[in-house]
Simulated assay, not measured.
Amino acid sequence: MKKITDERLIFRNLQHIKIIYIVQSIGILCILGYELFQGGLEDMRKNPLWLLFIVTSVVYAYLSISTSVENEKALQNPKKSFVVSIIVLIAIATAVAYLTIAKNFGWTNGVVIGVILFICGFIPFYYVYRLRERQIKDLNDDQP
Rank of each mutant, 00 (worst) to 15 (best):
V55L: 11
F11I: 09
I22R: 06
V69T: 06
Y21L: 15
L52R: 06
L41C: 06
F11G: 08
L75D: 08
L41D: 07
T5N: 12
L41S: 09
N13L: 12
I17R: 10
G106H: 00
A91V: 10
D43T: 13
I20Q: 10
I19E: 07
I113R: 07
K79F: 14
E133H: 01
Q135C: 00
S85Y: 07
N77Y: 06
L89S: 14
Q24G: 13
L32M: 10
I26S: 11
D141C: 06
P124R: 05
L75V: 01
E72Q: 13
I31T: 15
I31P: 04
S66E: 08
I54L: 12
Y129R: 02
S25T: 13
Q24W: 13
I113W: 02
A61W: 11
F37V: 03
T94P: 02
V83S: 07
V112G: 07
G106E: 08
A93V: 02
K79A: 14
N104K: 09
A61K: 04
F53V: 06
F125D: 09
A61L: 14
I20L: 14
S57E: 10
R12V: 04
R8A: 12
N104A: 09
C120N: 12
Q38W: 02
E133P: 00
Q76A: 07
K80Q: 15
I22Q: 05
N77H: 03
E70Y: 02
V23N: 07
I86E: 05
N109Y: 02
L63Y: 05
P48R: 02
T108H: 09
G40P: 02
R8Q: 13
T67L: 13
R132E: 02
S85E: 11
L63K: 11
V128Q: 12
V111K: 04
F82Y: 14
M44G: 01
Y98F: 07
A97C: 05
I87M: 12
P78L: 02
L14E: 12
I92Q: 00
L32W: 03
A93P: 07
L99P: 00
E35I: 01
K103E: 07
V55C: 09
I92S: 08
F82I: 10
L32G: 04
E35G: 11
F125A: 15
G106D: 06
L49W: 07
I123F: 15
M44D: 01
V59N: 04
Q24E: 14
L52G: 11
L29H: 04
L63E: 03
T94W: 01
Y34R: 15
N109P: 00
D141Y: 11
E70P: 05
P48W: 03
V84Y: 08
D141K: 10
T94K: 01
S64N: 13
I20H: 11
D138I: 09
K103H: 08
Q143A: 13
Y34D: 13
F105H: 03
L29S: 15
Q135L: 06
Y98L: 12
D138F: 01
T94V: 07
I87C: 14
H16G: 05
S25V: 09
C30P: 01
G114D: 04
V59T: 12
S64K: 09
L117E: 03
A102P: 03
I28E: 09
R12K: 09
F122A: 01
R130P: 03
Y34P: 03
T108V: 14
L75N: 13
G27S: 12
S66I: 03
Y129M: 03
